[in-house]
Design a protein around this nucleic acid. Structure first.
Length: 865
RNA sequence: GCCGGGAUGGCGGAAUUGGUAGACGCACGGGACUCAAAAUCCCGCGGUGGCAACACCAUGGGGGUUCGAUUCCCCCUCCCGGCACCA
């Protein structure tokens, strides 16, 4: 056994052993309960960052812990390999996205392996490989057959210079991020997935997910946005015909306060009204420019223009003017709203600006409105000024108006969702081809199953001008599967969120060549523990839930929800340091290049750049990023310290869901602990190769050590079960502290050796999930067994926690005034007597009457005077 | 604006779900070893007063419940995250 801790040697050897013997290969033929542990698969961006390391370490701790607890575990890994960065890198370097991606995968796979993760690599998949994405295509065709996928013309951000569609994130201040060109809203045909058909189930089923964080469920519920209201119609005449103008409202109780109607610029009525109305046409044109991003729309100034059309109020028969308003969204409800300026803040601002009438019809339950209104009164109240509805409250008035509208066949109650169908078409090269052929004769034809996959050519190099697939006749030109005539392939590819919506099903049967999934999904799914960043709280997790339900309805899987438990790990932060350069530009310095000065009490005083000794300014802390130059490269960390030290620090520094503040000094602390662990193990191995079983009666000074070990073990098991890994690591430190103290006081050898050996075996098993390599090596070197992975997870011995004498805290009026030792079986009376006789208690009690004495068994005594 | 989560020493954080607030670690200070440094080990470390024993104050602020509140309830302040002209 080596005297010095050499992480690199033991980590290399352990990893080689695990790989050679297929230790982490998962099988379906086990009689143990299964545990499917999954971390969100990475995008192969080039190299791992700290967020990855944290994510995968958390997953690995849970995986190894459950394995030792007796579960049949599976922890797979794959690559979310399609996406835009590969195209950008291709443009920058002239390398095909495929090569760039595969190279990155190879390198990052090596990095992941150096972390010592208990991954079943035989199930590895990459979404850019045809044997994966063919099932995207196959399933898309099934959805198409069932009306779950459909084609529709939708509004997108269009960059007129690059001739391409941009994601909302790529539109900055209404301009394309690459070209700086003013972005147009353009309507182009796209394929949509009908996620809204599942809106209600997606919302309701959140209640079946107690293992999900509340905030994620709240965010999803918010996103789905269910609202109850009334859909009803105004009527108007155009070209001599009677037409209906439908609107939706949640405030039918204010319907008597309508003073105008507002429609979206894209609304058919507006489109009709613009004909022969030049100013209106110009206004609608203006609304069409700019970003389609909702946050941008939300901050835009409210503008509008009358259409000249008047509509009839369905209940009053009044004529109200129809306006085009830029604040009305075509994508929600009917694209038209009844405007009640008195009770809707947006309508109020609009009406004030254009001097339209404001008619209050709701007032506080017990009180009056202050007129004139300075803002909309939006609270629920009672109707007034509303004819037959006067005196009704919100719910009564909604019921009454809905009934009256219904009687005239002009409206009914309706449930509406904010959620919209998922547009999956991307005018991008590096993605899964949409398996459609456009035939001049037959129209859009799905590619037959036996012609799948539609393979994406891997040798394209995008140039930033449109989709390079369009310039590939070998891809585009084909024959129609129906009529055999010349036809063109769809060149749009699928949103990469499609790829990640079902990969966790595929892991159950990644080698299945003839089907999307097979019966093994029923064994492994649902994922027992999913771990990933909070940034995916809505999109990825919602799409995955939708996709799973769609797969269920096609009979492919039995589960309705893919992820039983969800852990969202916090971000990794670091200090930010900068200097203002001569030109006023900020120059950021990596914290590793900065030295911090402290005062006598450890307060941070100032910081200087090590290179020149001159001061730098501290700009607080923030997520690790290139722009702030505050990243820490995990690879250099592992190269310097080894994986165990990196893993230990990550787990120790904060609870997994909290943000983690990076501290190089903290890493040093972790290194110190593991060195101490090693040294202790080495010395224990020298002195006590074998030791007799723990005896029933130990000398008191040794029983104390055993008590501490088992008390900490009990705590650690509780913390493990609630995923509070930082205190599990803490328990490990406390156990080592206790063992060292016992060893140092070196009382009579035999019983001490027994307790030390037992304690150390507990410590190693406790640390095995967090620091697997050092635990593996010490376990062997000390002769505990061949493989710590096969060892039983430790449970505390209740007998070790029994003490003959207990120390009770003594309080007077809830304030600590001392402590007292009592025999374990002392009764209340005896304890009370003992406490009241205590000198310090007497000091505080004397001269006052003792009202009562509260005795909390095993804890404290409180004398109330 | 709506929804969610927070606030504990110089710092990260702990407190077994109402029972000794500050565990464990980092930083800092002092000491041992050393020619010296690194490594390692020992001691101290919330604030105020006191030589000390000890006392008082202290978990963002204010109230309440309780023998006892970081923990439960009400009000307020600030911070972080999400959604946001959703009718």
């Amino acid at each position: 056994m080596q005297q010095r801790y050499n992480p690199h040697v033991i980590e290399r050897e352990a990893q080689k052993l695990w790989e050679d013997s297929g230790t982490f290969r998962a099988v379906e033929t086990s009689d143990k309960p299964k545990y499917y542990c999954l971390s969100m698969f990475p995008y192969p961006s080039g190299k791992l960052h700290m967020g990855h390391v944290r994510n995968y370490t958390i997953g690995d701790v849970l995986t190894r812990y459950h394995r030792m607890k007796g579960y049949n575990v599976m922890q797979p890994m794959g690559w979310d390999a399609f996406g835009l960065p590969a195209e950008n890198a291709a443009m920058a370097n002239g390398v095909p996205p495929a090569k760039w991606t595969y190279d990155n995968i190879a390198y990052m796979e090596k990095q992941l392996k150096s972390l010592g993760l208990a991954i079943d690599w035989s199930r590895e998949l990459a979404t850019c490989r045809p044997d994966y994405y063919r099932w995207n295509q196959w399933f898309f065709l099934r959805m198409l057959e069932r009306g779950l996928a459909y084609k529709k013309t939708g509004v997108v951000n269009w960059d007129p210079v690059d001739q391409t569609v941009l994601a909302n994130e790529q539109v900055i201040d209404g301009r394309g991020w690459r070209t700086g060109a003013v972005i147009e809203k353009r309507e182009i045909p796209m394929y949509y997935l009908a996620i809204t058909k599942y809106a209600d189930e997606l919302l309701e089923a959140l209640d079946t997910l107690p293992g999900w964080p509340d905030r994620v469920k709240a965010m999803q519920a918010n996103w789905i946005g269910k609202s109850h209201g009334v859909r009803f119609a105004f009527t108007y005449t155009v070209d001599g015909r009677q037409e209906k103008l439908w609107v939706f409202t949640t405030r039918a109780d204010t319907i008597m306060g309508v003073t105008f109607v507002a429609v979206a610029a894209e609304h058919p009525l507006a489109q009709h009204a613009r004909l022969g109305n030049a100013p209106l046409a110009a206004f609608i044109e203006e609304c069409g420019r700019g970003s389609v991003m909702e946050a941008d729309i939300a901050t835009a100034e409210k503008k509008g223009m009358p259409t000249g059309i008047y509509a009839t109020h369905p209940l009053t028969g009044e004529q109200v003017e129809v306006w085009v308003g830029n604040y009305v969204l075509m994508g929600y409800g009917e694209g038209a709203v009844m405007a009640v300026p008195a009770h809707d803040q947006r309508d109020f601002e609009f009406a004030t600006h254009y001097k339209l009438p404001i008619k209050p019809v709701v007032k506080p339950k017990d009180g009056e409105l202050e007129l004139p209104l300075t803002a909309a009164y939006v609270d629920y109240g009672v109707c007034f000024n509303s004819g037959k509805y006067d005196g009704l409250d919100h719910a009564q008035a909604v019921d009454a108006t809905a009934a009256d509208l219904s009687a005239k066949s002009l409206g009914e109650k309706q449930v509406l969702y904010r959620l919209r169908d998922w547009g999956i078409s991307r005018q991008r090269y590096w993605g899964c081809p949409i398996p459609i052929v456009h035939c001049p004769a037959c129209g859009d034809v799905g590619v037959p199953d036996d012609q799948l996959p539609v393979v994406l050519p891997e040798d394209c190099v995008p140039d930033g001008h449109g989709n390079p697939l369009k310039k590939r006749p070998d891809f585009v030109d084909t024959t129609c599967p129906k009529c055999g005539g010349a036809a063109k392939r769809e060149t749009d590819t699928m949103d990469t969120f499609v790829d990640s919506s079902w990969y966790y099903h595929r892991f159950a049967c990644a080698d299945q060549k003839n089907a999307m999934v097979d019966g093994r999904v029923d064994y492994w799914l649902p994922v027992d523990q999913y771990i990933g960043g909070i940034e995916h709280a809505i999109l990825h997790l919602l799409y995955s839930r939708f996709w799973t339900k769609a797969m269920r309805d096609l009979g492919l899987v039995k589960v309705s929800e893919p992820f039983k438990n969800l852990l969202t790990q916090g971000m990794v932060l670091n200090d930010i340091y900068f200097r203002k350069s001569g030109t006023g530009r900020l120059v950021y310095f990596n914290p590793a290049e900065v030295e911090i000065k402290f005062d006598d009490k450890g307060n941070r005083l100032s910081a200087v750049l090590i290179a020149d000794g001159q001061p730098v300014e501290w700009d607080g802390i923030g997520t690790m990023s290139k722009s702030k130059n505050n990243g820490v490269d995990p690879q250099s960390l592992i190269d310097e310290h080894g994986a165990d030290i990196a893993r230990f620090f990550m787990m120790f520094a904060s609870p997994p869901e909290d943000t983690l503040l990076w501290k190089d000094a903290g890493v040093e602390g972790a290194a110190r602990f593991l060195r101490r662990l090693w040294t202790f193990g080495y010395e224990l191995g020298q002195t006590a190769a074998q030791a007799p079983a723990v005896e029933a009666s130990l000398p008191a000074e040794i029983a104390v050590t055993r008590l501490e070990v088992h008390a900490q073990l009990k705590q650690a098991n509780y913390d493990m079960s609630r995923h509070q890994f930082n205190t599990v690591a803490t328990a490990g430190m406390k156990i080592l502290n206790a063992l060292e103290a016992c060893q140092k006081s070196s009382p009579d050898a035999a019983p001490a050796a027994t307790v030390l050996r037992e304690g150390f075996s507990i410590l190693l098993r406790l640390l095995a999930p967090i620091t697997p390599h050092i635990a593996h090596q010490l376990w062997r070197d000390l002769g505990y067994g061949e493989d710590i992975l096969e060892a039983k997870w430790p449970e505390h011995d209740p007998a070790a926690l029994v003490q003959d004498e207990l120390e009770l805290v003594v309080q007077v009026n809830g304030k600590k005034r001392g402590d007292v030792r009592v025999p374990r079986d002392a009764d209340r009376k005896a304890i009370e007597a003992l406490v009241l006789a205590d000198a310090n208690v007497q000091k505080f009690v004397s001269g006052q009457t003792v009202k009562k004495v509260v005795v909390v068994p095993g804890r404290l005594v409180n004398v109330v005077v």
